[in-house]
């Protein structure tokens, strides 16, 4: 195996990353369809082990969910087709839908860029040979593995309007009337975003760290020899080299933010009032917590899905374009 690796390294050293596979251009026309069939079978043989489990346990229930969103299903008995009634009700008679949608988007817009910047910063900071770096990397990952109850308690104490350390610092630097954080309508969501970012940055840092290893050192050496500054190295070597990870993280973070649930539940439970009520919570409330209206709750999930899909498609095409 080591020979293969050594050989691989040799090839990698010589070629530029990102050159596309053009095998089919060399193939004679007559054999194209045969190759296509062969490739299809080959491709599916790779995908099948995962796909069978995925289709049965995830795809099937999700398709059922789409069907259910057009019915009055209440988790028991028959599901009667009611057409667009659920969606009509959602858009005209659900006082909290617009609020939850706005809150969810607000959370996403703040949380995604913040977390990406923080996790990339941490990854670059900790991607070096430094005494104790192992400890710091582990520490960065701790918020993600810590019990969420503990996270909520400690952060709520930090945010405490009267004797929380955060407000004490703010008063010390001259802000006489600091925010009331989790007990104010304006600041509850930013507070949740801060905790969300703090909690997840270690998680995404790990992916960026792994991504940094895939960038050949030769590229830095070449850039350095050309007299590129550190910032230029970041801009022309690191950032383009991390494109696949950035795409992955952007997509996962956006979807994860749109689906945010347990963090809000333990931090503020949607309050005060409806200041931090989000879509997943609305889904949970309408299905399990309140009246078992699974058909109706499914229609909210479908709306959430469509929004996520639009976001993902945009990111997909931006990524495709940058790839070329």
């Amino acid at each position: 195996m080591s020979e293969v690796v050594a050989e691989a390294a040799l090839v990698e050293g010589k070629t530029q990353a990102g050159v596309r596979y053009r095998a089919k251009d060399k193939t004679p026309r007559s054999r194209r369809s045969k190759l296509r069939l062969r490739n299809t079978l080959l491709g599916w043989s790779f995908i099948a082990p995962n796909f069978i489990g995925f289709a049965l346990l995830t795809l099937l229930p999700i398709l059922a969910l789409f069907y259910v969103s057009f019915t009055d299903w209440n988790a028991f008995g028959q599901a009667n087709w009611i057409g667009l009634d659920n969606f009509r009700r959602l858009f005209t008679k659900e006082p909290n839908f617009e609020i939850a949608l706005k809150n969810t988007l607000y959370y996403t817009v703040l949380h995604v860029p913040l977390t990406m910047a923080a996790s990339l910063g941490l990854a670059i900071l900790l991607n070096r040979k430094l005494k104790g770096v192992t400890f710091f990397r582990t520490a960065a990952f701790f918020p993600y593995i810590c019990s969420i109850v503990a996270v909520a308690v400690v952060w709520n104490a930090l945010f405490h309007p009267e004797y929380g350390p955060i407000n004490e610092v703010l008063r010390f630097i001259g802000i006489d009337d600091p925010p009331r954080w989790t007990v104010s309508k304006e600041w509850a969501m930013p507070a949740v975003v801060i905790v969300g970012t703090w909690r997840e940055m270690g998680y995404y840092m790990l992916l960026y760290l792994a991504g940094l290893q895939t960038i050949p050192r030769e590229q830095y050496e070449a850039a350095s020899l050309d007299g590129a500054s550190s910032w230029q190295q970041f801009l022309y070597v690191t950032w383009p080299g991390l494109r696949p990870q950035t795409f992955f993280i952007a997509v996962m973070l956006t979807i994860g933010s749109m689906k945010v649930f347990d963090l809000v539940l333990v931090m503020t439970d949607g309050g005060p009032g409806t200041a931090t009520l989000v879509l997943s919570q609305l889904i949970w409330n309408k299905s399990f917590k309140e009246t078992g209206q699974f058909g109706y709750a499914s229609s909210i999930a479908v709306v959430l899905f469509v929004i996520c899909l639009v976001f993902t498609l945009v990111q997909f095409f931006v990524n495709k374009r940058n790839q070329k």
Partner: peptide, 27 residues
Amino acid sequence: IRFPGRDVLFLGYIATIAVPWQAYMVP
């Protein structure tokens, strides 16, 4: 491996991540 329908299938994979689990846990 290039084969027809690959990108659509892949997008389908990602799309399922976008559905909150609470919504389809009963089915």
